[in-house]
């Protein structure tokens, strides 16, 4: 990688100050996505501003019926959290299946959603559950936060500090792994919200996380899981590569949606 500076500010305010002073500075939390990018010399930040250990970002607690997860919580911590396991077991399971064990020890929820890799798992849960993303500046609805692959509504100098997940009735995340990278070829987070409405969020299509509205309406009408195969799912949401065509990815999305819903039932 190219040489770079490094700082580990003691407070969020100090981190923000560093970012403001240096346009080429880059936040790092767990760094599990960033570090391979740097090693491949695909980016050349002037310095890394490390926020992984900021206490402000490292808590999990209940807020009303929902939960709040600090941006700096690792996937392993989320997966093991009694609070998450009690309130949103599907989210704990999702976190416990990200990457591999070593990556789960470092990677964080804040880093994952801020990066918004189209194959990352977390965005599906955030979108499906109608979570809200807390930054140092504002609170963003999930729908407003994600903006296509590797893109979010985050402004320069804006940092994700926490994610608020509302309670839900029941949910399930299923991932179909790319046989090489083990990232999601397709992942589906299916949920029945506290309001009884259904949410289906899909990742891995290639263009970033999206909701399968037709399926949600189908389910909200009380129609059965078996009928899902005929519910339209726009092929434009999917791109193909050597691991699977767009058509195949769409097909798998339908299959694992059905399986997730069956597990929920």
């Amino acid at each position: 990688m190219y040489d770079l500076g490094y700082s580990r500010p003691a407070t969020l305010a100090k981190a923000l100050e560093l970012l403001q002073q240096d346009d080429l500075a880059q936040l790092v939390s767990g760094g599990q996505t960033l570090m391979p990018v740097l090693r491949a010399r695909l980016a050349a930040p002037s310095q890394l501003v490390d926020i992984a250990r900021l206490d402000d970002l490292r808590q999990i607690c209940t807020i009303g019926a929902g939960i709040e997860i600090g941006a700096g919580m690792t996937h392993a911590e989320v997966a093991a959290s009694p609070v998450v396991r009690a309130h949103l077991p599907a989210l704990a399971a999702l976190a416990g299946g990200i990457g591999d064990a070593q990556i789960r020890h470092r990677g964080t929820i804040g880093g994952s959603i801020a990066n918004n890799d189209p194959a990352a798992c977390y965005p599906s849960a955030v979108l499906a559950l109608g979570a809200r993303v807390q930054t140092n500046l504002r609170m963003l609805d999930a729908e407003a936060f994600f903006a296509g692959m590797f893109a979010t509504a985050l402004e320069p100098g804006e940092i994700v500090t926490a994610v608020h997940f509302p309670a839900c009735a029941v949910a399930c995340y299923l991932k179909f792994r790319n046989p090489a990278s083990r990232f999601a070829l397709v992942g589906v987070f299916a949920a029945r919200l506290a309001s009884d409405e259904h949410r289906i969020a899909i990742i891995g299509g290639g263009n970033g996380v999206f909701r399968w509205h037709e399926a949600e309406r189908h389910l909200d009408r009380g129609a059965g899981v078996d009928g899902l195969d005929t519910v339209p799912l726009d092929l434009a949401n999917f791109t193909g590569d050597i691991h699977g065509s767009a058509d195949y990815r769409r097909h798998v999305a339908k299959v694992i949606t059905r399986r997730a819903l069956t597990q929920m039932a």
Binding site: R8, Q32, P36, A76, H105, R106
Partner: peptide
Amino acid sequence: KAVKSCTILAVQAA
């Protein structure tokens, strides 16, 4: 905790 030492800077582990 087990981590990949190729995916963390030495300074991060200070």
